[in-house]
Computed example of a mutant assay.
Amino acid sequence: MTNHIVLFEPLMPANTGNIARTCAGTNTVLHLIKPLGFSTDDKHLKRAGLDYWDKVKIVYHDNLPAFMATLTANDDLHIVSKFALRDYASIDYNQPERDQYFLFGKETTGLPEPFMRQHPDECIRIPQNDEHIRALNLSNTAAIIIYEALRQQSFPQLERVHQYENDKLK
């Protein structure tokens, strides 16, 4: 089982850099669907990702249909949208034989409405107060969801207590 964060036409380099850093720390594959709203050489992108870029597996896709064509019958697609009816925490992400893909829309407009209408059963949301904000920050949303998946999966291949801390407890 592998977890994947997929960004549809991301616009803000700092968000993508922060998400890349989260991917590096969680062994999550990062997928970027073109066109990107920045250069991958962008100084803000590199600064947000710090020196972790070589620790992130990044897959580029020319467009949304090209990404969708890579999914197999053994993959679970979760489309993250504030318009979804299902709560992200109500989904079982602990499916050992299945890869988990979390697809996030563009910061300004989300995912194309026709695409969303074609996939209502795959849509999930993080509860929020819609009266106060339009949407949560993309990098925060990605972190919330990937850590829920990892929690359900018992944090596979992640160090839960540093050896130094472990030695102090003895």
Rank of each mutant, 00 (worst) to 15 (best):
S81R: 01
D87Q: 08
G110D: 02
D42Y: 03
M1Q: 12
L85I: 03
T40M: 14
T109M: 11
M12C: 07
F38G: 13
Y147L: 09
K34Q: 02
T40I: 13
P114T: 13
V161Y: 03
E107R: 00
A142F: 11
Y101L: 12
S139W: 14
I145N: 06
T2Y: 15
Y93A: 02
I58E: 07
V80R: 09
A142P: 10
T40S: 11
A66Q: 02
R117I: 07
L85C: 02
E107V: 05
L45I: 15
Y164H: 14
G110A: 11
E107K: 00
V6C: 09
A149T: 04
L77T: 05
D167Y: 08
P10T: 04
H132T: 15
Q128S: 09
E107L: 01
M1R: 10
G49F: 04
I79C: 07
D42G: 07
R125S: 15
A24R: 11
Q118R: 13
Q153R: 14
H4W: 06
R47A: 09
P112R: 02
P114R: 15
T141E: 04
I19H: 03
F38N: 13
Q100T: 08
K34E: 02
D42M: 05
K34N: 02
F8S: 09
H44R: 08
M68V: 02
E122I: 12
V56S: 05
R86E: 14
Y52E: 05
Q163Y: 14
L85K: 04
R86I: 13
A14I: 07
T26K: 15
E113Q: 14
G105Y: 01
N94F: 06
F115T: 01
M116W: 00
M12W: 15
Q95G: 03
D41I: 15
Q118F: 11
K170H: 14
N15L: 13
N129I: 08
K55P: 10
P127L: 10
L103F: 09
P120Q: 07
T28D: 07
D62P: 13
N63L: 04
D167A: 08
N137T: 13
P96L: 10
D76Q: 13
K46R: 15
N18P: 09
R86W: 13
L111E: 12
P35S: 06
G25V: 06
A149D: 02
K43R: 00
S81G: 08
A20Y: 05
A14W: 05
L169D: 10
R47G: 05
H61R: 15
K168A: 07
R134L: 03
G25D: 08
K168L: 14
L103Q: 12
